[in-house]
Design a protein around this nucleic acid. Sequence first.
DNA 1: ACCTGAACACCGTTCAAGT
DNA 2: ACCTGAACACCGTTCAAGT
Lengths: 217, 217
Amino acid sequence: MIILAALAEIDRAGLESFSLRNLAKALGVFPTAISWYVPGRSQLLAEVARKVLEDITPPGFHDSWQGYLRDFFRRFRQAIRRHPNAAPLIGTQLVANPAVDLDFIERLLAALAHGGLSGARLVAAYNAVIAAAVGFTTQEFAPVPVDGTDAWQQEIRERLQSVPATRYPQLAQNMKLLGNKAFTLRWQNGTESPLDASFEAFVDIVILGLEQFAGRT
Amino acid sequence: MIILAALAEIDRAGLESFSLRNLAKALGVFPTAISWYVPGRSQLLAEVARKVLEDITPPGFHDSWQGYLRDFFRRFRQAIRRHPNAAPLIGTQLVANPAVDLDFIERLLAALAHGGLSGARLVAAYNAVIAAAVGFTTQEFAPVPVDGTDAWQQEIRERLQSVPATRYPQLAQNMKLLGNKAFTLRWQNGTESPLDASFEAFVDIVILGLEQFAGRT
DNA sequence: ACCTGAACACCGTTCAAGT
DNA sequence: ACCTGAACACCGTTCAAGT
Protein backbone atom coordinates (compact mmCIF):
# COMPACT_ATOMS: atom_id res chain seq x y z
CA MET A 1 0.00 0.00 0.00
CA ILE A 2 1.47 3.27 -1.15
CA ILE A 3 -0.30 5.31 1.55
CA LEU A 4 1.39 3.26 4.27
CA ALA A 5 4.74 3.75 2.58
CA ALA A 6 4.16 7.49 2.46
CA LEU A 7 3.19 7.56 6.13
CA ALA A 8 6.29 5.57 7.01
CA GLU A 9 8.40 8.07 5.08
CA ILE A 10 6.78 10.95 6.99
CA ASP A 11 7.32 9.16 10.30
CA ARG A 12 10.95 8.63 9.42
CA ALA A 13 12.09 11.86 7.81
CA GLY A 14 9.36 14.35 8.64
CA LEU A 15 6.76 16.17 6.60
CA GLU A 16 9.11 18.98 5.61
CA SER A 17 11.43 16.75 3.64
CA PHE A 18 8.75 14.46 2.27
CA SER A 19 8.61 14.32 -1.49
CA LEU A 20 7.22 11.95 -4.07
CA ARG A 21 10.74 11.44 -5.37
CA ASN A 22 12.05 10.40 -1.98
CA LEU A 23 9.07 8.11 -1.60
CA ALA A 24 9.86 6.56 -4.97
CA LYS A 25 13.46 6.06 -3.92
CA ALA A 26 12.36 4.37 -0.70
CA LEU A 27 10.14 2.04 -2.74
CA GLY A 28 12.98 1.31 -5.14
CA VAL A 29 11.05 2.64 -8.06
CA PHE A 30 11.23 5.46 -10.59
CA PRO A 31 9.66 8.77 -9.49
CA THR A 32 7.12 8.68 -12.24
CA ALA A 33 5.80 5.29 -11.16
CA ILE A 34 4.08 6.99 -8.21
CA SER A 35 1.78 8.82 -10.56
CA TRP A 36 0.23 5.58 -11.64
CA TYR A 37 -1.12 4.90 -8.14
CA VAL A 38 -1.92 8.39 -6.97
CA PRO A 39 -3.53 11.34 -8.79
CA GLY A 40 -1.22 13.83 -7.13
CA ARG A 41 0.81 14.84 -4.13
CA SER A 42 -1.95 16.59 -2.19
CA GLN A 43 -4.38 13.71 -2.68
CA LEU A 44 -1.76 11.34 -1.33
CA LEU A 45 -1.30 13.51 1.75
CA ALA A 46 -5.06 13.63 2.23
CA GLU A 47 -5.10 9.82 2.20
CA VAL A 48 -2.26 9.79 4.72
CA ALA A 49 -4.27 12.06 7.02
CA ARG A 50 -7.22 9.69 6.77
CA LYS A 51 -4.98 6.72 7.48
CA VAL A 52 -3.72 8.35 10.66
CA LEU A 53 -7.28 8.92 11.89
CA GLU A 54 -8.70 5.52 11.03
CA ASP A 55 -9.94 3.35 13.88
CA ILE A 56 -10.62 6.21 16.26
CA THR A 57 -14.30 5.38 16.58
CA PRO A 58 -14.76 4.16 20.15
CA PRO A 59 -16.01 0.56 20.08
CA GLY A 60 -18.71 -1.13 22.14
CA PHE A 61 -20.98 0.44 24.71
CA HIS A 62 -20.31 3.23 27.16
CA ASP A 63 -21.85 4.00 30.51
CA SER A 64 -22.64 7.54 29.41
CA TRP A 65 -22.45 9.90 26.46
CA GLN A 66 -19.78 11.84 28.37
CA GLY A 67 -17.77 8.64 28.62
CA TYR A 68 -18.11 8.11 24.90
CA LEU A 69 -16.81 11.61 24.16
CA ARG A 70 -13.92 11.20 26.56
CA ASP A 71 -12.97 7.95 24.90
CA PHE A 72 -13.11 9.61 21.47
CA PHE A 73 -10.92 12.54 22.50
CA ARG A 74 -8.29 10.22 23.93
CA ARG A 75 -8.32 8.00 20.85
CA PHE A 76 -8.01 10.97 18.57
CA ARG A 77 -4.97 12.21 20.47
CA GLN A 78 -3.45 8.73 20.63
CA ALA A 79 -3.78 8.38 16.87
CA ILE A 80 -1.79 11.55 16.28
CA ARG A 81 0.69 10.63 18.99
CA ARG A 82 1.62 7.61 16.87
CA HIS A 83 2.38 9.82 13.87
CA PRO A 84 3.26 13.26 15.21
CA ASN A 85 5.07 14.25 12.03
CA ALA A 86 1.78 14.01 10.20
CA ALA A 87 0.00 16.30 12.68
CA PRO A 88 0.03 19.37 10.41
CA LEU A 89 -1.98 17.39 7.86
CA ILE A 90 -4.90 16.82 10.21
CA GLY A 91 -6.14 20.37 10.59
CA THR A 92 -5.98 21.15 6.91
CA GLN A 93 -6.90 17.96 5.10
CA LEU A 94 -10.05 17.08 7.02
CA VAL A 95 -12.16 19.65 5.24
CA ALA A 96 -14.61 17.72 3.21
CA ASN A 97 -13.69 14.15 2.74
CA PRO A 98 -15.96 12.33 0.31
CA ALA A 99 -15.09 8.93 1.73
CA VAL A 100 -15.32 10.12 5.31
CA ASP A 101 -16.19 7.55 7.93
CA LEU A 102 -19.97 7.73 8.25
CA ASP A 103 -20.02 5.24 11.11
CA PHE A 104 -17.82 7.56 13.10
CA ILE A 105 -20.07 10.56 12.50
CA GLU A 106 -23.24 8.59 13.22
CA ARG A 107 -21.96 7.38 16.57
CA LEU A 108 -20.73 10.80 17.60
CA LEU A 109 -24.08 12.32 16.71
CA ALA A 110 -25.84 9.52 18.60
CA ALA A 111 -23.76 10.23 21.70
CA LEU A 112 -24.59 13.92 21.56
CA ALA A 113 -28.27 13.18 20.90
CA HIS A 114 -28.18 10.97 23.97
CA GLY A 115 -27.00 14.03 25.86
CA GLY A 116 -30.21 15.78 24.94
CA LEU A 117 -29.19 17.64 21.80
CA SER A 118 -31.06 17.78 18.51
CA GLY A 119 -31.41 19.87 15.40
CA ALA A 120 -29.16 22.86 14.90
CA ARG A 121 -27.77 22.53 18.42
CA LEU A 122 -26.75 18.96 17.71
CA VAL A 123 -24.85 20.08 14.63
CA ALA A 124 -23.18 22.87 16.60
CA ALA A 125 -22.13 20.42 19.30
CA TYR A 126 -20.74 18.04 16.70
CA ASN A 127 -18.67 20.85 15.20
CA ALA A 128 -17.50 21.83 18.67
CA VAL A 129 -16.23 18.32 19.37
CA ILE A 130 -14.35 18.09 16.07
CA ALA A 131 -12.89 21.59 16.42
CA ALA A 132 -11.77 20.86 19.97
CA ALA A 133 -10.07 17.58 19.06
CA VAL A 134 -8.32 19.06 16.06
CA GLY A 135 -7.28 22.23 17.86
CA PHE A 136 -5.56 20.74 20.84
CA THR A 137 -3.72 17.98 19.04
CA THR A 138 -2.47 20.01 16.11
CA GLN A 139 -1.17 22.59 18.57
CA GLU A 140 0.37 20.04 20.90
CA PHE A 141 2.20 18.26 18.11
CA ALA A 142 2.90 21.23 15.87
CA PRO A 143 6.45 21.00 14.54
CA VAL A 144 9.22 22.89 16.24
CA PRO A 145 10.92 25.32 13.84
CA VAL A 146 13.86 23.82 12.01
CA ASP A 147 15.93 26.38 13.84
CA GLY A 148 15.01 24.68 17.12
CA THR A 149 18.55 24.70 18.42
CA ASP A 150 19.69 24.74 22.03
CA ALA A 151 20.46 28.44 21.76
CA TRP A 152 16.96 29.04 20.48
CA GLN A 153 15.43 27.06 23.37
CA GLN A 154 17.57 28.93 25.84
CA GLU A 155 16.43 32.24 24.41
CA ILE A 156 12.74 31.51 24.99
CA ARG A 157 13.47 30.26 28.49
CA GLU A 158 15.41 33.35 29.45
CA ARG A 159 12.90 35.66 27.87
CA LEU A 160 10.17 34.14 29.99
CA GLN A 161 12.26 34.29 33.15
CA SER A 162 13.13 37.93 32.71
CA VAL A 163 9.56 39.10 32.24
CA PRO A 164 8.96 42.25 34.31
CA ALA A 165 6.57 41.42 37.13
CA THR A 166 5.12 44.92 37.27
CA ARG A 167 3.84 44.85 33.72
CA TYR A 168 3.18 41.10 33.48
CA PRO A 169 2.10 39.95 36.93
CA GLN A 170 0.31 36.79 35.78
CA LEU A 171 3.16 35.74 33.53
CA ALA A 172 5.76 36.37 36.22
CA GLN A 173 3.79 34.60 38.90
CA ASN A 174 3.11 31.48 36.84
CA MET A 175 6.38 31.47 34.97
CA LYS A 176 7.47 27.99 36.03
CA LEU A 177 4.09 26.49 35.24
CA LEU A 178 3.90 28.14 31.83
CA GLY A 179 7.37 27.38 30.49
CA ASN A 180 7.23 24.56 27.93
CA LYS A 181 3.68 23.81 29.12
CA ALA A 182 1.60 26.62 27.64
CA PHE A 183 0.92 27.06 23.93
CA THR A 184 3.16 29.69 22.34
CA LEU A 185 5.48 29.48 25.37
CA ARG A 186 6.97 26.09 24.56
CA TRP A 187 10.31 25.13 23.06
CA GLN A 188 9.39 21.48 22.59
CA ASN A 189 6.27 19.90 21.16
CA GLY A 190 4.14 17.03 22.42
CA THR A 191 6.53 14.40 21.17
CA GLU A 192 9.19 15.42 23.64
CA SER A 193 6.99 17.07 26.23
CA PRO A 194 3.41 15.76 26.23
CA LEU A 195 0.66 17.93 27.71
CA ASP A 196 -1.22 15.08 29.36
CA ALA A 197 -2.69 17.01 32.27
CA SER A 198 -3.67 19.95 30.10
CA PHE A 199 -5.36 17.65 27.63
CA GLU A 200 -7.42 15.88 30.28
CA ALA A 201 -8.48 19.25 31.67
CA PHE A 202 -9.39 20.36 28.16
CA VAL A 203 -11.59 17.31 27.68
CA ASP A 204 -13.24 18.08 31.02
CA ILE A 205 -13.89 21.67 29.97
CA VAL A 206 -15.44 20.72 26.65
CA ILE A 207 -17.66 18.02 28.13
CA LEU A 208 -18.74 20.29 30.97
CA GLY A 209 -19.56 22.94 28.43
CA LEU A 210 -21.58 20.51 26.33
CA GLU A 211 -23.53 19.43 29.40
CA GLN A 212 -24.47 23.04 30.14
CA PHE A 213 -25.19 23.73 26.49
CA ALA A 214 -27.49 20.71 26.31
CA GLY A 215 -29.25 21.72 29.52
CA ARG A 216 -30.24 25.16 28.33
CA THR A 217 -33.63 25.55 26.72
CA MET B 1 7.65 45.32 4.24
CA ILE B 2 8.31 41.92 2.75
CA ILE B 3 5.96 40.12 5.14
CA LEU B 4 3.03 42.23 3.94
CA ALA B 5 3.97 41.51 0.34
CA ALA B 6 4.06 37.79 1.08
CA LEU B 7 0.66 37.96 2.78
CA ALA B 8 -0.74 39.88 -0.19
CA GLU B 9 0.61 37.18 -2.51
CA ILE B 10 -1.05 34.48 -0.40
CA ASP B 11 -4.32 36.41 -0.34
CA ARG B 12 -4.19 36.75 -4.09
CA ALA B 13 -2.97 33.41 -5.37
CA GLY B 14 -3.33 31.05 -2.41
CA LEU B 15 -0.89 29.25 -0.19
CA GLU B 16 -0.54 26.29 -2.54
CA SER B 17 1.01 28.31 -5.32
CA PHE B 18 2.99 30.66 -3.11
CA SER B 19 6.71 30.60 -3.74
CA LEU B 20 9.63 32.88 -3.02
CA ARG B 21 10.21 33.19 -6.74
CA ASN B 22 6.66 34.34 -7.38
CA LEU B 23 6.99 36.77 -4.52
CA ALA B 24 10.19 38.10 -6.06
CA LYS B 25 8.44 38.49 -9.38
CA ALA B 26 5.60 40.40 -7.74
CA LEU B 27 8.16 42.69 -6.11
CA GLY B 28 9.95 43.19 -9.42
CA VAL B 29 13.15 41.79 -8.06
CA PHE B 30 15.47 38.83 -8.59
CA PRO B 31 14.57 35.67 -6.67
CA THR B 32 17.80 35.72 -4.73
CA ALA B 33 17.15 39.21 -3.41
CA ILE B 34 14.55 37.74 -1.06
CA SER B 35 17.24 35.87 0.81
CA TRP B 36 18.76 39.13 1.96
CA TYR B 37 15.64 40.04 3.94
CA VAL B 38 14.50 36.66 5.16
CA PRO B 39 16.48 33.71 6.50
CA GLY B 40 14.28 31.20 4.70
CA ARG B 41 10.88 30.28 3.38
CA SER B 42 9.49 28.73 6.58
CA GLN B 43 10.58 31.69 8.70
CA LEU B 44 8.81 34.01 6.30
CA LEU B 45 5.62 31.99 6.58
CA ALA B 46 5.92 32.06 10.37
CA GLU B 47 6.10 35.85 10.21
CA VAL B 48 3.07 35.89 7.95
CA ALA B 49 1.14 33.83 10.49
CA ARG B 50 2.10 36.30 13.21
CA LYS B 51 1.05 39.19 11.00
CA VAL B 52 -2.38 37.69 10.49
CA LEU B 53 -2.88 37.32 14.25
CA GLU B 54 -1.61 40.73 15.30
CA ASP B 55 -4.07 43.09 16.97
CA ILE B 56 -6.37 40.39 18.27
CA THR B 57 -5.90 41.40 21.91
CA PRO B 58 -9.25 42.82 23.01
CA PRO B 59 -8.77 46.47 24.04
CA GLY B 60 -10.17 48.38 26.99
CA PHE B 61 -12.28 47.03 29.80
CA HIS B 62 -14.93 44.35 29.80
CA ASP B 63 -17.90 43.81 32.03
CA SER B 64 -16.82 40.25 32.75
CA TRP B 65 -14.08 37.73 32.08
CA GLN B 66 -16.56 35.80 29.99
CA GLY B 67 -17.09 38.91 27.90
CA TYR B 68 -13.36 39.25 27.43
CA LEU B 69 -13.05 35.68 26.21
CA ARG B 70 -15.97 36.07 23.85
CA ASP B 71 -14.39 39.20 22.41
CA PHE B 72 -11.09 37.38 21.94
CA PHE B 73 -12.66 34.41 20.16
CA ARG B 74 -14.50 36.71 17.75
CA ARG B 75 -11.41 38.77 17.04
CA PHE B 76 -9.37 35.65 16.43
CA ARG B 77 -11.88 34.40 13.89
CA GLN B 78 -12.21 37.80 12.28
CA ALA B 79 -8.45 37.98 11.81
CA ILE B 80 -8.42 34.70 9.90
CA ARG B 81 -11.53 35.66 7.98
CA ARG B 82 -9.53 38.53 6.50
CA HIS B 83 -6.84 36.14 5.24
CA PRO B 84 -8.48 32.75 4.84
CA ASN B 85 -5.78 31.52 2.47
CA ALA B 86 -3.30 31.81 5.31
CA ALA B 87 -5.45 29.72 7.66
CA PRO B 88 -3.36 26.53 7.34
CA LEU B 89 -0.37 28.46 8.69
CA ILE B 90 -2.05 29.25 12.00
CA GLY B 91 -2.33 25.79 13.44
CA THR B 92 1.18 24.79 12.58
CA GLN B 93 3.31 27.91 12.97
CA LEU B 94 2.13 29.01 16.39
CA VAL B 95 4.20 26.44 18.25
CA ALA B 96 6.78 28.39 20.13
CA ASN B 97 7.19 31.88 18.93
CA PRO B 98 10.11 33.68 20.55
CA ALA B 99 8.67 37.10 19.84
CA VAL B 100 5.18 36.09 20.86
CA ASP B 101 2.88 38.83 22.11
CA LEU B 102 3.33 38.86 25.88
CA ASP B 103 0.65 41.48 26.36
CA PHE B 104 -1.85 39.19 24.75
CA ILE B 105 -0.93 36.26 26.98
CA GLU B 106 -0.92 38.40 30.12
CA ARG B 107 -4.39 39.72 29.48
CA LEU B 108 -5.80 36.31 28.67
CA LEU B 109 -4.31 34.89 31.85
CA ALA B 110 -5.68 37.84 33.81
CA ALA B 111 -9.16 37.22 32.44
CA LEU B 112 -9.02 33.55 33.42
CA ALA B 113 -7.59 34.41 36.84
CA HIS B 114 -10.52 36.77 37.25
CA GLY B 115 -12.73 33.79 36.64
CA GLY B 116 -11.23 32.10 39.68
CA LEU B 117 -8.45 30.05 38.13
CA SER B 118 -4.88 29.82 39.29
CA GLY B 119 -1.84 27.59 39.11
CA ALA B 120 -1.94 24.48 36.96
CA ARG B 121 -5.65 24.93 36.31
CA LEU B 122 -5.00 28.43 35.01
CA VAL B 123 -2.44 27.06 32.56
CA ALA B 124 -4.83 24.31 31.48
CA ALA B 125 -7.58 26.86 30.87
CA TYR B 126 -5.20 29.03 28.86
CA ASN B 127 -4.30 26.07 26.68
CA ALA B 128 -7.97 25.22 26.29
CA VAL B 129 -8.76 28.71 24.99
CA ILE B 130 -5.91 28.68 22.48
CA ALA B 131 -6.70 25.16 21.32
CA ALA B 132 -10.37 26.03 20.90
CA ALA B 133 -9.69 29.17 18.88
CA VAL B 134 -7.17 27.47 16.64
CA GLY B 135 -9.27 24.35 16.17
CA PHE B 136 -12.48 25.93 14.99
CA THR B 137 -10.97 28.51 12.68
CA THR B 138 -8.46 26.27 10.97
CA GLN B 139 -11.24 23.78 10.33
CA GLU B 140 -13.72 26.38 9.18
CA PHE B 141 -11.30 27.93 6.71
CA ALA B 142 -9.37 24.85 5.74
CA PRO B 143 -8.80 24.85 1.98
CA VAL B 144 -11.10 22.92 -0.28
CA PRO B 145 -9.21 20.30 -2.31
CA VAL B 146 -7.94 21.59 -5.64
CA ASP B 147 -10.28 19.04 -7.17
CA GLY B 148 -13.24 20.93 -5.70
CA THR B 149 -15.22 20.81 -8.90
CA ASP B 150 -18.95 20.90 -9.27
CA ALA B 151 -18.99 17.17 -9.88
CA TRP B 152 -17.08 16.66 -6.67
CA GLN B 153 -19.51 18.83 -4.72
CA GLN B 154 -22.44 17.01 -6.21
CA GLU B 155 -20.94 13.69 -5.21
CA ILE B 156 -20.74 14.59 -1.52
CA ARG B 157 -24.24 15.99 -1.60
CA GLU B 158 -25.71 12.88 -3.16
CA ARG B 159 -23.75 10.61 -0.90
CA LEU B 160 -25.21 12.34 2.13
CA GLN B 161 -28.72 12.27 0.73
CA SER B 162 -28.60 8.57 -0.02
CA VAL B 163 -27.49 7.54 3.43
CA PRO B 164 -29.52 4.51 4.61
CA ALA B 165 -31.78 5.61 7.48
CA THR B 166 -31.73 2.22 9.10
CA ARG B 167 -28.00 2.14 9.63
CA TYR B 168 -27.47 5.88 10.05
CA PRO B 169 -30.58 7.26 11.73
CA GLN B 170 -28.96 10.42 13.08
CA LEU B 171 -27.30 11.23 9.79
CA ALA B 172 -30.46 10.62 7.82
CA GLN B 173 -32.63 12.61 10.21
CA ASN B 174 -30.34 15.66 10.29
CA MET B 175 -29.18 15.43 6.70
CA LYS B 176 -30.30 18.90 5.69
CA LEU B 177 -28.76 20.53 8.75
CA LEU B 178 -25.46 18.70 8.32
CA GLY B 179 -24.83 19.25 4.62
CA ASN B 180 -22.19 21.94 4.11
CA LYS B 181 -22.59 22.91 7.79
CA ALA B 182 -20.83 20.10 9.66
CA PHE B 183 -17.07 19.50 9.59
CA THR B 184 -16.10 16.68 7.19
CA LEU B 185 -19.51 16.96 5.56
CA ARG B 186 -18.88 20.24 3.76
CA TRP B 187 -18.08 21.00 0.14
CA GLN B 188 -17.27 24.65 0.78
CA ASN B 189 -15.18 26.29 3.45
CA GLY B 190 -15.85 29.30 5.64
CA THR B 191 -15.01 31.77 2.90
CA GLU B 192 -18.02 30.76 0.85
CA SER B 193 -20.17 29.35 3.60
CA PRO B 194 -19.38 30.79 7.06
CA LEU B 195 -20.35 28.82 10.15
CA ASP B 196 -21.47 31.82 12.19
CA ALA B 197 -24.09 30.11 14.32
CA SER B 198 -21.89 27.10 14.97
CA PHE B 199 -19.03 29.35 16.01
CA GLU B 200 -21.13 31.33 18.48
CA ALA B 201 -22.41 28.09 19.97
CA PHE B 202 -18.84 26.84 20.20
CA VAL B 203 -17.80 29.95 22.12
CA ASP B 204 -20.75 29.43 24.44
CA ILE B 205 -19.76 25.82 25.05
CA VAL B 206 -16.14 26.66 25.83
CA ILE B 207 -17.02 29.52 28.17
CA LEU B 208 -19.68 27.45 29.92
CA GLY B 209 -17.13 24.70 30.33
CA LEU B 210 -14.58 27.09 31.77
CA GLU B 211 -17.13 28.42 34.25
CA GLN B 212 -17.81 24.90 35.49
CA PHE B 213 -14.12 24.04 35.49
CA ALA B 214 -13.35 27.14 37.56
CA GLY B 215 -16.17 26.39 39.96
CA ARG B 216 -14.94 22.92 40.86
CA THR B 217 -12.68 22.59 43.84
C1' DA C 1 -1.62 -3.45 -15.63
C1' DC C 2 2.50 -1.57 -14.24
C1' DC C 3 6.89 0.58 -14.79
C1' DT C 4 10.80 2.99 -17.36
C1' DG C 5 12.94 6.97 -19.31
C1' DA C 6 13.30 11.43 -20.98
C1' DA C 7 11.66 15.94 -20.59
C1' DC C 8 9.43 20.27 -18.77
C1' DA C 9 8.67 23.98 -15.94
C1' DC C 10 9.37 24.91 -11.58
C1' DC C 11 11.52 25.37 -6.68
C1' DG C 12 14.73 27.18 -2.33
C1' DT C 13 19.28 28.35 -1.35
C1' DT C 14 24.43 29.06 -2.18
C1' DC C 15 27.86 32.20 -3.34
C1' DA C 16 30.52 35.43 -5.84
C1' DA C 17 30.06 39.67 -8.08
C1' DG C 18 28.50 44.18 -8.67
C1' DT C 19 27.14 49.14 -6.99
C1' DA D 1 23.48 47.97 2.44
C1' DC D 2 21.17 46.01 -1.18
C1' DC D 3 20.69 43.65 -5.48
C1' DT D 4 22.30 40.94 -9.70
C1' DG D 5 23.59 36.77 -11.96
C1' DA D 6 24.95 32.20 -12.43
C1' DA D 7 24.69 27.78 -10.50
C1' DC D 8 23.17 23.65 -7.72
C1' DA D 9 20.40 20.14 -6.21
C1' DC D 10 15.99 19.45 -5.96
C1' DC D 11 10.72 19.16 -7.06
C1' DG D 12 5.74 17.44 -9.21
C1' DT D 13 3.79 16.13 -13.38
C1' DT D 14 3.47 15.13 -18.58
C1' DC D 15 3.79 11.81 -21.98
C1' DA D 16 5.58 8.34 -24.91
C1' DA D 17 7.65 3.98 -24.68
C1' DG D 18 8.37 -0.51 -23.02
C1' DT D 19 6.81 -5.30 -21.08
